[in-house]
Nucleic acid binder design. Structure first.
Length: 315
RNA sequence: GGCGACAUGGCCAAGCGGUAAGGCAAGGGUCUGCAACACCCGUAUCACCAGUUCGAUUCUGGUUGUCGCCU
């Protein structure tokens, strides 16, 4: 397996990560760890484009269907669970393959970002939340400006992060920006082969549109209805997912179905764009243009061959 | 054929004498506990021609185009 500890398969949504991860796992006696903020939830299959048991072809998968949609999920939890999974896979003499589009999650694992210090405190958070409501976000921003100007500049207008910065400082006495600087200096804890699947933007957008249409055909509407019946509300982490929240809004009478579908497509395009900017700044990624590996139905195998060769040091 | 209205960036749309609001889309970016989140940056010389004026996207005339009404 050369000198790599693990492989990462990233890329924008709808780029074919899942198929490639299966093909690679078969080649390397690997197991897949999903780095996806929505596929962790049960009852959310269609909208999250969750890989089916069939498609898994017997390859073990981790971090899929591990939470109820009522439960919270976040980077910190992901990192913990993913680390455990990596360890278990390695102990079995198998090869870990991280597959998913959430760049932040992958980063947290690769660089061992420490979320233990300044662990979030609901009381402190509520306090700032209330302040934001009564005095406005700008008052919190001013406050942050005086105690941690670097964070204040970076998080301008960003309520969640302004509050986190304030919270972190209050809990630890250290500026969040200082902690980040400290952590950024860290080297990756794993030697990872970080692949990112890409394709021309136009093609990607086409595939996104098609995939959303397919999700609708497969019953995304019904899926969201069921979630609502289960008592899932708009503010839960699970209902933040693309596709879910738009259908939710439609079902709550915000807009008609056509608008919902249009919004899902548009927002997914925006998302894909953001994913790309994330990968661009990631240091050692290996971009793989999937269009160079034949047509879509058969390319996964050839892409996996290519990735395997790189991992084995043959390229 | 006649009458009237309108022509502003990819789309929608303000401005109506002093050198182009805004929204959306496209594009770029930020991100260290909600990240499929949240946030930031950002693109025109106003259909064309000729006048009036110190100065016109804004006024006048014409050309072209679009829309509506009428015969």
């Amino acid at each position: 397996m050369g000198s790599y500890d693990l492989a990462v398969i990233g890329g924008p949504t709808a780029s074919g990560k899942s198929a490639a991860s299966i093909a690679l796992a078969k080649r390397l006696n690997g197991e897949v760890i999903s780095a996806d903020s929505m596929q962790v939830y049960t009852h959310m299959d269609i909208g999250s484009a969750k890989i089916s048991k069939d498609m898994m072809q017997g390859i073990p998968h981790h971090l899929i269907d591990i939470l109820e949609p009522t439960e919270e999920f976040n980077v910190s939890l992901f990192k913990e669970l993913a680390e455990d999974a990596v360890q278990k896979i390695v102990q079995k003499k198998s090869f870990p393959i991280i597959c998913g589009g959430t760049g932040f999650y992958i980063q947290s694992l690769l660089y061992g970002i420490d979320f233990k210090e300044g662990e979030t405190d609901q009381k402190v958070r509520d306090k700032y939340e209330k302040l934001a409501e009564s005095d406005g976000l700008s008052s919190l921003e001013e406050r942050l400006e005086t105690v941690d100007p670097v964070s204040a500049k970076a998080y301008h207008g960003n309520k969640k992060r302004v509050i986190r910065a304030l919270e972190y400082l209050e809990l630890t006495g250290e500026k969040l920006s200082d902690k980040n600087k400290r952590q950024r200096a860290q080297e990756s804890v794993y030697n990872a082969a970080y692949f990112v699947l890409t394709m021309p933007r136009e093609l990607l957008y086409e595939r996104i549109d098609k995939r959303v249409d397919l999700m609708m055909k497969e019953g995304l509407l019904e899926e969201v209805k069921k979630l609502m019946d289960m008592g899932i509300t708009r503010n839960m982490t699970s209902m933040q997912g693309l596709g879910y929240r738009q259908i939710y809004d439609h079902l709550s009478g915000e807009y008609d179905l056509e608008t919902a579908v249009y919004e899902i497509k548009k927002q997914t395009r925006h998302f894909a764009k953001r994913q790309m900017t994330w990968y661009r700044r990631e240091k050692k990624v290996i971009f793989i243009d999937v269009t160079k590996f034949g047509d879509h139905d058969t390319s996964a195998e050839r892409i996996a061959d290519h990735m395997r060769d790189i991992i084995n040091g043959q390229i």
